[in-house]
Amino acid sequence: MEANEALAIATVPCQQWGQLYEEGTALTNGTVFPDLNKPFYVTDTLVDSPVTMGKASTSLDPKQMEREQLMNKINQVSFFVNDLTLYLDTHGDDKEALKVLSDKGKERATLLDEFAEKYYPLTCDCIAKCSKAGEENLWANGPAPWEGACI
């Protein structure tokens, strides 16, 4: 038996820090860690047609495309922050992970401010960053996330 194994209780090995996906790949795959990406290959042949996600965006006007690109970037960086936060919950002393989380956290804050300034605020903390703050109800601006209009 391994050191941490005992009878009559579950054992899961602790993950070791390793290679990370780049941001876009991480979001598509659902994890920043290649070690934890375990796809369900058995149904891949069932797909109707090649993935069309984002295809509609190409017919959009350039302004909306630009907005969607920034939103995509925010989704990618924020997901990195989410997944690393969970890793650090159980690996609190991992300095390398802390460094990446800190860098991505700063990038995320900058991107959220940029989105608020250019389009509408995504969090209540970003309202003050909009140039129109105090002139209209900014929090009600922009499509609801479930509309799928601004991915």
Binding site: V12, G30, L36, K38, P39, F40, L86, T90
Partner: peptide, 21 residues
């Protein structure tokens, strides 16, 4: 759906580590 499925596997790993802690 595939994204959400992977999250279940990542969470399983974290709860396993929580049990070890």
């Amino acid at each position: 759906l595939k994204f959400l499925r992977t999250r279940e596997i990542v969470h399983f790993q974290r709860f396993g580590e929580a049990l070890e802690k």
